[in-house]
Amino acid sequence: MVRLDPDPFLNELTKLYEQHRDKGTVWVTLKRVHLDWKRKRKATVESEDETVDYRCLVRATDGKKNISAMLSAKDHQRFQMAYATVLKAHMDALKKREKKDKKEKKAAAAIAATATVVKQ
């Protein structure tokens, strides 16, 4: 696991998405953690201790390579905007909005297909 600063993390995440455009999957995980490693997880579940420093841990993997970053309360706002930009740039394989339900979708697709054939 490579721990990076938020900005290099976003660069590496961009690379991961680019590497897996043709095949493969990219996972991104968000988790809340505290920085007191010695303390057991269970001990903190009931009530959050105000004195302990909490962070948002962001991890990304393609199944082989792992990268991660820690976000403090100060970092997260800037990071989440930059992260949204990275996602928007790479999630372009998703389908555009279709209001019709599935049956109508199929019918519309068939009509569109015949329309293109007619045009040709």
Partner: peptide, 11 residues
């Protein structure tokens, strides 16, 4: 502290 949020994207 136990909950994680995972986003999986397959281009």
């Amino acid at each position: 502290l136990k909950t994680r949020y995972v986003m999986k994207y397959r281009h």
